[in-house]
Design a binder for these strands. Structure first.
Lengths: 185, 185
DNA sequence: GCTTCGAACTTTACTGTTGAAGTCTTCGGA
DNA sequence: TCCGAAGACTTCAACAGTAAAGTTCGAAGC
């Protein structure tokens, strides 16, 4: 039997137990804030595991799926350079080189020199890559619909809106020396 | 200049642009659902980068901080076996062995054989490890407070409650063959 | 009291990522 | 035109993680 990375935290303490433990050690912790943050973290871990399992059925990895998504989002003709891909995925260019190697080998993308500027490289989605993306997307959207099944339509909108507000706070914050999230506007 | 992994997605398309792109390629995508899911993903990526930068000031890595948190949550006397730690962190035991090696070398934890059952190993938080956790927690809670500054107190509670509902859906779902999230109760 | 089984790590080989150095091309002066 | 600097990858060495095999101890049968 393989040493599986094991579904994260099977008998890990519940969210409330976890927060209670933190409060015992660190009194001025705001439990409301901590609940939001901890739930976000756990939710994401679980979701990534679920996505990974699903796309594995298509013989691609979670990381390859990320690349496919990025190319699709860039729109037709589904082309980006390795550097741009790396930036958008938060990877080093070196990692991107290897990832593209693999994916080109699997026929998900092609890698070619830009004839107009021979320093540049163009990574382009193949039809197979586009098909894989579509299949993954279909599976993902089913999963996501299941995940949100307990939320009424208005709640979904509200949740999306609140998360967007948080996102705006992190994304628009200029890299402040002290690491504080500065006021916008 | 080092090849930095670069703050994820500096000029990545906005959330709405991204969703619009998906819809062009995959018509029956529910934009409300997708907005929630994409915002969750992005938020988490940004937050992890931010945490990583903050704890780096304490000379620990994000992954080491995870271990410290897990031990603190377990409560006094802050002891767990490598296997249990691995399970809670979603890692293989092998990875845990190396992580503990490193952390023991840095004085954040101790590693000892259990005298009552010499197959078992006990990882215990040191005072230094506990101090690091506390400092990291202080920085994190400031950041989290900043992050949530645009939400009114009632909104924070509501957000936490909705996220908990989603979490319940993923955590309680039995590993269903088809990957569907089954109905509970 | 052996022996076998199973549990709890550890070790080894391989894969993927980072950080730093190297290569190749383009561009902007001297 | 030629040179130097900058940009865009790629290569290389070190490190972290996974999978699978190995080790060691404890427990359960015979």
């Amino acid at each position: 039997m393989p040493d599986t990375p094991e579904t994260p935290g099977p008998d890990e303490p519940s969210l409330d137990e976890q927060i209670a433990a933190y409060q015992r050690e660190f009194q001025d912790l705001d439990p409301q804030v901590e609940k939001v943050v901890s739930a976000l973290g756990r939710l994401n871990r679980r979701m990534n595991v679920a996505y990974g399992r699903q796309v594995a059925d298509l013989d691609i990895s979670n990381t390859e799926w990320e690349v496919l998504k990025t190319l699709v989002v860039s729109g037709a003709p589904y082309r980006l350079g390795p550097g741009e891909l790396a930036k958008r995925l938060g990877l080093t260019p070196a990692a991107m080189t290897h990832r593209i190697d693999r994916m080109a080998g699997e026929g998900l993308v092609t890698r070619d020199r830009d004839e107009n500027n021979r320093v540049r490289v163009i990574v382009e989605l193949t039809d197979e890559g586009r098909t894989k993306w579509l299949e993954a997307m279909r599976m993902a959207s089913t999963f996501e619909e299941d995940l949100l099944q307990d939320l009424a339509p208005e709640e979904r909108v509200l949740l999306g809106e609140m998360l967007t507000r948080l996102l705006r706070r992190v994304e628009d914050a200029q890299p402040d020396a002290g690491g504080r999230l500065t006021d916008l506007d």
